[in-house]
Design a binder for these strands. Structure first.
Length: 640
DNA sequence: GTTAGGG
DNA sequence: CCCTAAC
């Protein structure tokens, strides 16, 4: 075969170079980096939570009374919860500011604010954001996990902040103190992933699921570890939703404080955090794509369509199209409940309209699960943009307040909607601080800052500044344009604990909390640090130009190639050209059946091969003239 | 800043 | 397409 090829090689391209057996290209198939399986499940929810958090920005200060009524509505639930507590579940409430163990009055307060526990069934579709006192994670039979409490955050803050804490006066240094707290707000379903909590010593309020708790405890490095490990074990798909809900709640809370944080913290450290987060949730579209393609290759794949709440899934033979035209993969319906100046809302469901994955029929269920998770993770981790819809219109201005946007208690909050938009860039997810908030690894600074290419590039819509900017706000200006606005604003940035502002602390706590669910990677992957550029397949025309340029200047002079044929193509760097050439050579080397993507005319591939051989020889020449020259002669003779 | 090559 | 090493 090789010989034959060599003989054929001369020609059409004008290159009459000897065929040099092409060394089998090292298959660089990357094994998709297997992300820790579990990690991502929760990411999606977190993202939503982030959004919600913004909305709740203003409501962070707990309005006890307000929520109290809510609690009333949940009467039966509350009953259940209490029952659970009575049954002996130890709850460790995190202390809230107003809580005073010795003060009956304070107790009542806490009760009012407390907990919303819903049976899992309810929970599944209903995510109620509410401020509640911190509670412990307990596994309650029949009860499912739910919400965290704002109060909790506060507590966390105190602990975390340690000496720094200023604003929050209450300090929970003694876990037992927390214990005395009133009814807990969060119950986690043991069967899911909460088990750890159960396992955890009941008395130890700082262990197990309650991330907050961990954060709170300064002594908790270990706890963190445990927690994370635990989360690693959480693999079940459904559980995700549950956990996610809880996380959302937490995230929301955290987010609510972000603004404050932002105001005070915008220094380098913050950025560091931000980057770090990115690492956690970063996702490499390009790689994903590769993986995805591989999967699709299987002829007989089952197509799993994930549609519906995060916790539900269905299988069908055909993928279901997303609801949104533009391919948004999910949308959230949110019902708002508001009281006073606070806006409360529950997320009825989070939908991922289209999530198509394919696996071979022979795949195991486990693989299927993993695949789904991976897909979800990819989506979520890949960068999601959150859109806020008011009256069906997209709100683009993130700086307006909710009320300015028309989201006040008295107005029709019912028209509020969120959309999850596929993001080309990775959004920093609040959840992701893999590292305990308290200290960021120094290495984080190493993260690359390269700005991600955003969809904006394609749409022409400028992206808002990222980093700190994205931390903020809800947008309020409603625009008619359906275009997605690439704003990252929805996602809260990480804060750093060290800062003086307590607001920051809470956030951190929450975040870490949220993060808890995600396996913590000690070493951030660089791939996740920076955003990938959008993939832009080379057109035949471009390939042609590339081939022509390489034929002329040769390989190894990519800058020249770039200047020669792609000078005006700003999105094509010489590295891109080099890479493309690499792939072209590979493509030309394999059988047509093995090729994928837009077919490249064989003629071009032939030229690629010819030029490649030629220049390869040429290089050899540089190094060892004799041999090369000889080869050339021989080759030439053969091809004739 | 470029190249080259692995991922 | 990314990331690095080596220029």
């Amino acid at each position: 075969m090789v010989v034959k090829r060599k003989l054929n090689c001369g020609g059409s391209n004008g290159f009459d170079f000897p065929n040099i057996p092409k060394a089998p290209r090292s298959s660089r198939r990357k094994v998709s980096g297997k992300r820790s399986d579990d990690e991502s499940e929760i990411c999606a929810i977190d993202l939503l939570a982030s959004l919600a958090g913004k909305l709740l920005e203003e409501s962070e200060s707990s309005s006890t009374s307000t929520y109290a009524s809510e609690a009333d509505n949940l009467d039966h639930l509350g009953g259940l919860i209490k029952q659970e507590l009575e049954d002996g579940y130890t709850t460790k409430p995190c202390k809230s500011e107003f809580f005073d163990p010795g003060n009956p009055a304070s107790k009542s307060t806490s009760e009012n604010t407390s907990v919303t526990c819903l049976p899992f069934s309810s929970f599944e579709n209903d995510c109620i954001l509410e401020q509640t006192p911190v509670s412990d994670c307990k596994r309650a039979s029949g009860l499912k996990s739910l919400v965290g409490s704002i109060t909790e955050e506060t507590c966390v803050v105190n602990e975390d902040a340690g000496s720094e804490q200023g604003a929050n006066t209450f300090s929970l240094k003694d876990p037992s103190q927390l214990h005395s707290q009133s009814p807990e707000s969060v119950l986690l379903d043991g069967d899911v992933k909460l088990a750890p909590c159960t396992d955890q010593v009941p008395n130890d309020s700082f262990k197990g699921y309650r991330n907050h708790s961990k954060l709170v405890c300064r002594d908790d490095d270990e706890n963190y570890c445990k927690y994370y490990k635990f989360s690693d074990k959480c693999k079940s798909y459904r559980p995700l939703s549950r956990v996610g809900n809880r996380r959302i709640m937490q995230s929301v809370r955290a987010i609510s404080k972000l603004k404050c944080f932002e105001d005070t913290r915008t220094d380098g450290r913050l950025k560091a955090l931000y980057r770090k987060r990115k690492l956690c949730y970063g996702y490499n579209p390009w790689k994903r794509e590769t993986i995805h393609r591989k999967r699709r290759l299987s002829d007989k794949g089952l197509v799993v369509n994930y549609d519906g709440g995060l916790s539900s899934e269905s299988v069908s033979n055909s993928p279901e199209k997303g609801e949104s035209e533009n391919g948004d993969f999910s949308a959230a319906k949110i019902g708002l409940l508001s009281k006073d100046s606070r806006v409360k809302f529950s997320i009825k469901s989070l939908r991922i309209p289209e999530l198509v994955i394919e696996v071979p029929e022979t795949a195991t269920v486990g693989l299927l699960k993993r695949t789904v998770k991976e897909a979800v993770t990819a989506l979520l981790g890949g960068g999601i943009r959150i859109g806020v819809l008011v009256q069906g219109k997209k709100v683009r201005d993130d700086n307006n307040t909710l009320s300015q946007t028309g989201l006040s208690c008295r107005e029709n909050l019912g028209n509020l909607g969120f959309t999850l938009e596929p993001g080309l860039e990775t959004l920093p997810v609040p959840l992701c601080s893999e590292t305990p908030v308290l200290s960021l690894p120094t290495d984080s600074t190493k993260l690359s800052e390269r700005s991600a290419a955003s969809p904006a590039l394609e749409t022409g819509i400028p992206l808002p500044p990222q980093d700190e900017d994205y931390l903020i706000n809800l947008g309020n200006s409603v625009e008619n344009n359906d275009e997605l606005v690439p704003h990252l604003s929805d996602i809260p940035a990480d804060e750093q604990p060290s800062s003086d502002s307590r607001a920051l602390v809470p956030v951190l706590a929450l975040e870490s909390d949220a993060l808890a669910l995600v396996p913590v990677n000690e070493k951030p992957k660089r791939t996740e640090l920076s955003q990938r550029r959008t993939r832009r397949p080379f057109s035949v025309t471009e390939v042609e130009a590339l081939v022509s340029a390489v034929e002329e200047v040769g390989t190894g002079r990519w800058r020249d190639v770039k200047l020669r044929s792609f000078e005006n193509a700003s999105h094509r760097t010489y590295v891109d050209l080099k890479d493309k050439w690499k792939t072209l050579v590979h493509t030309a080397s394999i059988s047509p059946q093995q090729r994928r993507g837009e077919p490249v005319p064989q003629e071009l591939l032939d030229r690629v091969l010819g030029a490649h051989r030629y220049w390869t020889q040429h290089q050899m020449k540089q190094n060892g003239k004799h041999q090369v020259a000889t080869t050339m002669v021989v080759e030439a003779g053969s091809s004739m």
